[in-house]
Design a protein around this nucleic acid. Sequence first.
DNA 1: CATTGTCCCTGGAAGC
DNA 2: TGCTTCCAGGGACAAT
Length: 269
Amino acid sequence: MPELPEVETIKNQLIPHLTGRTFKSIKIYDTRPLGNLSEKEFSRRLVGQKITGLSRRGKYILIHLSGGSTLVIHLRMTGSLLWNPVDTEPFTRAEFFFENKDRLVFTDIRRFGTLSFVKETSDITNRLGIDPLNPKFTPQALQKLLSTRKSPVKAVLLQQELIAGIGNMYADEALFASRIHPAKPAQTLSACEIKRLHRAIQDVLHKAIRNKGASVRNYRSPDGRAGRAHEEFCVAHRGGKPCPRCGTSVSRIVIRQRGTYYCPTCQNI
DNA sequence: CATTGTCCCTGGAAGC
DNA sequence: TGCTTCCAGGGACAAT
């Protein structure tokens, strides 16, 4: 499940392969990720374009093109981008070909991922909240977001239009690290708790990036390897296992239809 | 605007 | 063994 650390890892690995390269041809095996665009129209917008750079915004990968438009990729739940995989990959939805037979393969088991174009990157960035790794994401900025909302704090962390990039796993990990109950109403957090949460969000994300992301299910980076971040998870996807801080069995509840893991001893309302 | 719920999708695990 | 049922969850969208 690619969240910010996974998408950041993918983007970083693709930069040296893709920067300056030109799309020679593409093959589309499934048009669902293209939305309203036909394969022909998609191809027309991409083939011949040179890649001027890659960036990440929230969980989106932006591939900037010489013509001024941007190819926008969202991997959702099970999408992967693989660089020159040796074997024929199952669930391949699209292939992008470059010079010297280099190729970028988009696979996606559940077909939630999307490939689209924007003329201005603001079309994407304007509807996303602050990036939690941006220096402007301060405890004060977090406090402002939480103070007006009575939803569970975890639900607020998952709202991409407020903070862009945190998903289900890292929300659980950040709340555990800051010892805050995921269902606690956002506006009831104390200044101290907000400070802890802010610190925990950045720590958890930075640590996961250093570990090349978490591979709870299907995630692989472009080199085909799994990440290691999940090996250090304290609560996420660890229902029934002991809390590493106190030994209590990790609980699972549902918040906003999302499985939520926490330690009932360390994380109080 | 804030909040909540539904839907999309398919492999794998669990249950019988 | 083989069938059925349920679960995973990001984000668009609708409803309140």
